[in-house]
Write a protein that binds this DNA or RNA. Structure first.
Ligand SMILES: [Mn+2]
Ligand SMILES: [Mn+2]
Ligand SMILES: [Zn+2]
Ligand SMILES: [Zn+2]
Lengths: 144, 144
DNA sequence: CAATACATTAGAATCGTTCTAATTACCGAC
DNA sequence: GTCGGTAATTAGAACGATTCTAATGTATTG
């Protein structure tokens, strides 16, 4: 479980509670971004895409702040960072353990339903190391 | 199976046969790079690292050619590209199906022995898509 | 040993991201 | 409410990896 606070169902002081809970000041920008990110369903966004979306929604926020905020959200556990493409990071509002389809042709990430089990047993980590995370990415492409 | 030609054990016209086999002209640069890449054991290199290694070995080759060559080698199946770090690509001389430990602290990739089985069954791909590859990355970090 | 197609190159350009230094906003104390 | 201190935001420069461009060099074939 995670994101138990997940910004209820619109209208929304949920973003405020969400920020309070993780000890980040509820600034105009962070409130707006939390509002965009933590709606009803989970999302996978890039920094540029979120910036475009914010600007489009009339939120005045710089790209620098988008990056600052995304990284802060990752640090406090509100987001996960997913690496599937060299040269671009995706941020994932689903912070539970799960894996991904990556649609290479269109650059879209999609959660793999947890029910379709993927992992068998894990190998032991190299001596003196501990496992930080296990990422499974199934790359898919347009039909044939 | 793959890389069945794997540049024998030094001295080496192996690189030449290797290029002939995939239909790439055996230029000075490509021969040298194939020599560096396809030795006795498998390697995971970045473009910059391979360039440094080549220059260090007295091979005169530009960074542009390193990129050209790596991508050509990927296209003909001599190399795989592995994405574990936003903003940097790794190239893998092991083109058999396998998975990786990624040592986040030092930026090193390590093959997971195929014996330590990792995958259970795979989920069905989204409708109208086919699975291009399945990447498993186990991120590990320095001890405690 | 042409002629031709292919390959290499230096350097500029691009892209995503991070940094810098200046401005602005939040917030607790009064 | 006002103030002061600290934290946050910002524009724009800087950065690192990669790609592109257009000029030069080299393998191949006849
Ligand atoms: Mn990052
Ligand atoms: Mn590439
Ligand atoms: Zn996800
Ligand atoms: Zn490998």
């Amino acid at each position: 479980m995670a994101n138990t606070q997940g910004a209820s169902t619109r209208g929304d002081g949920g973003a405020l509670r969400c920020l309070k809970q993780v000890g980040l000041r509820p600034t105009r920008q962070r409130l707006a971004l939390a509002g965009l990110l933590f709606g009803d369903s989970h999302r996978h966004v890039t920094a540029e895409a979120l910036h475009a979306e914010a600007v489009d929604a009339g939120v005045r926020v710089s790209l620098a702040t988008i990056y600052n905020t995304l990284h802060q959200f990752v640090k406090v556990g509100l987001l996960d960072e997913v690496v599937v493409d060299p040269g671009k990071s995706y941020f994932d509002t689903n912070t539970t353990e799960h894996h991904h389809f990556y649609h290479e042709d269109i650059g879209r990430l999609e959660d793999i339903p947890g029910s379709s089990v993927v992992l068998g047993r894990l190998p032991d980590p190299p001596a003196g190391k501990r496992i930080a995370s296990v990422d499974v990415v199934i790359r898919v492409t347009g039909d044939r």
